[in-house]
């Protein structure tokens, strides 16, 4: 594991995988959009509105997963001081924030026709909004210092504190009465979504995951280039 903590070796592997991520993403997204928009059944209660699920659920899944990645990297940057962990956390944050926003926005567009409201302050919606603010706070804290290295530690601590929110998001619909319905996929008695809808949903989740990996590699390349420019500047000035 520590071998890949070496940034050069890590980027070698990441660059080799990059075309796989891109092609996989385009392939899965095309298939996923075709099935979710054109070739999947309507819901017996919600009709065509159910198709919002194919964006909403993968976005929510990515928002939570990326937060988990960011927090694990924050922990390992605090404990082992791996510079790579810090770079992954810092590069993931804006992507996760964007997915959280997509999740909240698509949820509002779904809530209006189905529930009759854009937004309610129930436990699920509120805890996801808090996660959005945690992402924002992490990004703000990271960039609040003139010396970029000084923001790493406080931001990492904030990311770790926010981890308590993840189980709250997941189990909010079981622990409290909420307007949001209970879990449909990750539940003890198996998914409660019909197979014809579950397949396109999984395809879209795969596409979103590859999209994240694709963006992550691009952002890591940019971070390494920025670090190199800083070094050259310092050397040039000295």
């Amino acid at each position: 594991m520590h071998k890949f903590a070496n940034p050069t070796k890590f980027m070698k592997v990441a660059n080799a995988l990059f075309p796989v991520f891109c092609i996989g993403f385009i392939g899965l997204l095309s298939a996923g959009l075709y099935y979710s928009l054109l070739n999947s059944p309507e819901d017996y209660q919600q009709g065509h509105t159910v198709r919002i699920m194919y964006v909403h659920v993968p976005a929510a899944y990515m928002a939570v997963m990326i937060y988990a990645v960011m927090a694990s990297c924050a922990a390992s940057s605090l404990i082992w001081k791996h510079p790579l962990a810090d770079l992954i956390a810092r590069s993931s944050a804006p992507i996760g924030a964007a997915f959280t926003f997509l999740c909240l926005a698509s949820g509002a567009f779904w809530g209006k026709p189905m529930w009759g409201t854009w937004w309610v302050w129930d436990a699920r919606l509120t805890s996801v909004l808090i996660m959005f603010f945690l992402y924002m706070g992490y990004i703000a804290l990271l960039n609040a210092f003139d010396d970029p290295q000084r923001g790493v530690k406080p931001a990492a601590i904030l990311a770790l504190v926010g981890v308590v929110n993840l189980p709250i998001i997941k189990f909010s619909v079981d622990w409290w009465n909420t307007l949001h319905q209970p879990a449909s996929i990750i539940r003890l008695d198996g998914p409660t979504i019909d197979g014809g809808m579950l397949t396109p949903l999984y395809i879209m989740m795969g596409a979103f995951t590859l999209f994240y990996l694709m963006l992550l590699v691009i952002r890591l390349r940019a971070e390494f280039a920025a670090a190199r420019i800083r070094t050259i500047r310092i050397l040039g000035e000295g």
């Binding site: 309507e42 919600q46 189905m114 319905q181 979504i193 809808m197």
Partner: peptide
């Protein structure tokens, strides 16, 4: 003063129902 609909966690096509 306000009535919201809840929907449950089951998703399926009308034919399956």
């Amino acid at each position: 003063s306000e009535v919201l609909a809840k929907h449950d966690e089951n998703y399926m096509p009308p034919e399956a129902v």
